[in-house]
């Protein structure tokens, strides 16, 4: 396999730090399951997120009490594990999300100073 182009590798690094908060945001609008979440991330332009990356994040969020999970038969077909936000998760989304946006704004400022449009 050829080495990943630098922007993909860098994007992968960013995503590793932000995947948990993105998942919380995606669940804010309602419950979802693993594959649906990967589809949503791809639609949002974040590229393909593999199951091997997503599920450990879901597990950590669940252990931290920010999301809760239940096995249910979905509207279409067999049983899946559905995740939804808890109150603590909603709170964390607000705080962590705001912190990230502020941080990103500051980084943007540095980049604009450096002549990046």
């Amino acid at each position: 396999m050829s080495p990943e182009p630098p922007d993909v590798a860098r994007r992968g690094q960013w995503l590793r730090g932000l995947l948990d908060i993105c998942v919380l945001a995606l669940l804010a609008s309602g419950e979802s399951y693993g594959y649906e979440l990967t589809q949503a991330l791809e639609c949002a332009g974040l590229g393909q997120v593999q199951g091997g990356t997503l599920y450990p994040v879901l597990l950590r969020l669940e252990r931290a009490g920010l999301i809760e999970a239940a096995w249910r038969a979905g509207e279409t077909g067999p049983a899946r594990k559905y995740y939804r936000l808890t109150a603590a998760g909603r709170h964390e989304l607000g705080a962590g999300g705001a912190a990230w946006l502020a941080f990103a704004e500051r980084v943007g400022g540095i980049l604009r100073e450096g002549g990046v449009e």
């Binding site: 399951y33 693993g34 594959y35 649906e36 990967t38 593999q50 199951g51 091997g52 599920y55 096995w71 067999p78 049983a79 899946r80 594990k81």
Partner: peptide, 23 residues
């Protein structure tokens, strides 16, 4: 059991093999 079940469900939904999806 949960982890196995989840992997099975994801493979089914995504149409990928477990190896492709999870490494």
């Amino acid at each position: 059991n949960q982890t196995v079940g989840e992997a099975v469900a994801h493979a089914r939904d995504s149409g990928q093999t477990t190896e492709r999806a999870f490494g």
